[in-house]
Write a protein that binds this DNA or RNA. Structure first.
Lengths: 151, 151
DNA sequence: AAATCGAAGGTCAGTAATGGTCAAACGAAA
DNA sequence: TTTCGTTTGACCATTACTGACCTTCGATTT
């Protein structure tokens, strides 16, 4: 459990407690709270709270500046899942595949074990990130996601 | 009893003692414990903790990195099913794919709905019976069978 | 109104901390 | 002697974290 993980969990907890699926934070203050440099907060936000994972970040600089984190509306869950599936497209790198799996997991479209299975199978069957491999990876990923979503 | 065997036994013992059929290890730390190079751990994992033997490996590099080992639930009829899975091979025609699906159905490895889903998805994604299409069909079929078998 | 200042947040490159890969050497069994 | 599983180490890839420097924006001063 790294510092980045701790900050990630803290933000997610605050989002769960929030009324409107969004919270505002002060970068400097949060950095102070976790005894780290402010840019560490940016690192957590850019690696963990991406659009693919279902978050939107809005911020303002200057005096009274802030960072606001939105969790996408669960009402649109189905649409998001379908959209996410389409976003996989024809070709994905290994890292991109992981992001997609995490995104499906975040949406509770699939569970943790299914993620492990799919990831493991992809790693076993698809090695490297050549264009051909990326295409095969996308095909396999979509096929496996398809069955777990629909069965 | 080689070093690889010792490490294998150690990991299996820890899995037995674990609550959720999974443990996390530090590659460097485990290597230190057994007085060997870190890559020896990879050797043990890739030779002894494969999917075929019922294990899944997940890992993360970088600071706070780890290796997590999951034990899959051992199933009845596992040998037959695994064998059938391997028989799919690298290339299957549409008719052959249907036969494999029926065979899995006979073994109650998958259910009717899953068969329909897989068949429909294959028909949608793979057209024709050229060698290239047959290879893609085999890949997708195995990927989808894999997830429904193991999840 | 324009210039300036201070208080936010943003970016990026560098360093450290992990784990991954692969080919060669080794060694026991056939 | 050959073969095949084991072991090693050099080199690679990924992730976490930091700090110097940059940009933006509101408020204050000229």
């Amino acid at each position: 459990m790294t510092l980045a993980d701790l900050i990630e969990n803290y933000i997610k907890q605050r989002l769960l407690n929030s009324k409107d699926q969004s919270i505002a934070i002060s970068r400097a203050q949060l950095a102070e709270q976790f005894r780290c440099v402010p840019s560490q907060i940016n690192y957590v936000l850019t690696t963990r709270f991406t659009i693919e994972r279902g978050y939107i970040i809005e911020s303002r600089r200057g005096g009274g500046g802030y960072i606001r984190i939105f969790r996408l509306d669960p009402k649109e869950r189905e649409n998001l899942i379908v959209q996410l599936f389409h976003e996989i497209g024809q070709s994905v790198s290994e890292a991109a595949a992981d992001n997609f799996l995490d995104a499906f997991l975040e949406l509770s479209a699939i569970n943790r074990k299914q993620v492990q299975l799919i990831r493991a199978y992809l790693q076993q069957e698809v090695v490297g990130n050549s264009e051909e491999q990326d295409r095969l990876r996308a095909s396999l990923l979509k096929a496996m996601i398809f069955v777990v979503l629909n069965q």
